[in-house]
Design a protein around this nucleic acid. Structure first.
Length: 335
DNA sequence: AACGGTACCAACCGCACGAGA
DNA sequence: CTCTCGTGCGGTTGGTACCGT
């Protein structure tokens, strides 16, 4: 591709347009249309490159351009479309008559992005942002403390501290889970259903520095994963409400609950999001809760189940989380 | 009044891609 | 098929206005 840039010629004016230049451009296009942008500057008597003329026209001088503040409706439209389309400014602009992609992009970068961040949302995913890393040093210290305490587990003091650490350990176990490369990917790389978990893992690693990863992994290696024999009640007891926000806004785009259930405990949960069971050696299976499909899945007694519940469009996952954790009635014997 | 920091946005840059010679 | 051109697009830059100290 040996194309030379259009604006590297010496003597070609750059920078802000003067009203005189604007008028020349408008007059020319009104009379002749823009035709070839490359040829236009000479024909219009402008010492500009064609690209500069095109941008000036499409982003500023076009008669159908709507200027001024974005309305609430426009703002909402941009938010909605960005959640679906991402940074496809031109595609978003087609839904906002009179607004240019450049204008929308600027509005996004200067206003909406900050607004979302302030509200605690990730501007790229439109999902709640994590705050789990702000407490990372605290969690690492806790992991080290737990190790220390375990060396004195037989003492009365050691047991007391262990009990008080139990809730922190639940959070550490969650991190431990995230730090394990998802073996499900190797099992079934073609399944789109794997993406949320892979994202979770990648997001976590990408957002950590090397030293942090090593420290955390070293610390977490001392924490055993949830034992298959853990009862639901034990898990409920171990994760207090105060920790739910951290888990709900974990760096993954999904919402992950690692729990341990045996077949007899499983019934059809009443929440509306799809479920996945990706962590066992078997290929992951999507569970559609609305049609009771969970009943038909072959889950061996004592299997670890990872329930990944993605949520979209700003729906708060609190209800899902609390449904799973707090309502015993969701899990009862299957006849 | 002077200065520094910040927000805003027009304009630029460079890459990608389709069309056509 | 290759190359060039024209254009679209998203990311980034830089000038300017504004505000607080």
């Amino acid at each position: 591709m040996g194309r030379s840039p259009c604006c590297d010629e010496t003597g070609i004016k750059k920078g802000p347009w003067t009203p005189q230049e604007d008028q020349k451009l408008i007059n020319h296009i009104k009379k002749h249309g823009h035709g070839s942008w490359r040829a236009l500057p000479k024909l219009a008597g402008l010492n500009r490159c064609g690209k500069s003329c095109r941008l000036r026209w499409t982003n500023y001088l076009r008669p159908d351009i709507k200027r001024g503040k974005f309305s609430q409706e426009e703002e909402q439209t941009i938010l909605n479309l960005h959640a679906i389309l991402g940074n496809k400014w031109s595609a978003i602009a087609t839904h906002l008559p009179g607004r240019t992609d450049n204008e929308i992009k600027n509005f996004w970068n200067t206003h909406l992005k900050k607004k979302l961040i302030q509200m605690g949302y990730d501007p790229m995913t439109h999902r709640p942002r994590t705050n789990i890393f702000s407490s990372l040093p605290h969690l690492i210290a806790l992991a080290n403390l737990k190790e220390l305490v375990e060396h004195h587990h037989s003492s009365w003091e050691g047991q007391g501290v262990m009990r008080s650490l139990q809730s922190e350990v639940a959070t550490l176990q969650y991190l431990h889970y995230l730090l394990q490369p998802p073996n499900m990917v190797a099992n079934n790389t073609s399944s789109a259903n794997n993406i949320p978990d892979m994202e979770a893992y990648n997001n976590l690693l990408n957002s950590m520095k090397d030293g942090q990863i090593i420290n955390l992994e070293n610390s977490l290696n001392n924490i055993p994963p949830l034992a298959p024999s853990s009862s639901l009640q034990a898990i409920q007891d171990s994760i207090p409400f105060s920790h739910l926000p951290e888990l709900q806004t974990a760096p993954c785009s999904s919402f992950i609950l690692t729990t341990s259930l045996n077949k007899n405990m499983i019934n059809t949960p009443t929440t509306t999001s799809p479920w996945q069971l990706p962590s066992s050696p078997r290929p992951p299976v999507v569970v559609d809760q609305s049609n009771s499909a969970i009943k038909n899945i072959d889950i061996g007694e004592g299997d670890i189940i990872n329930c990944i519940t993605p949520f979209f469009g700003g729906a708060h996952p609190n209800s899902v989380w609390s449904d799973i954790l707090l309502e015993d009635s969701l899990f009862h014997d299957i006849p």
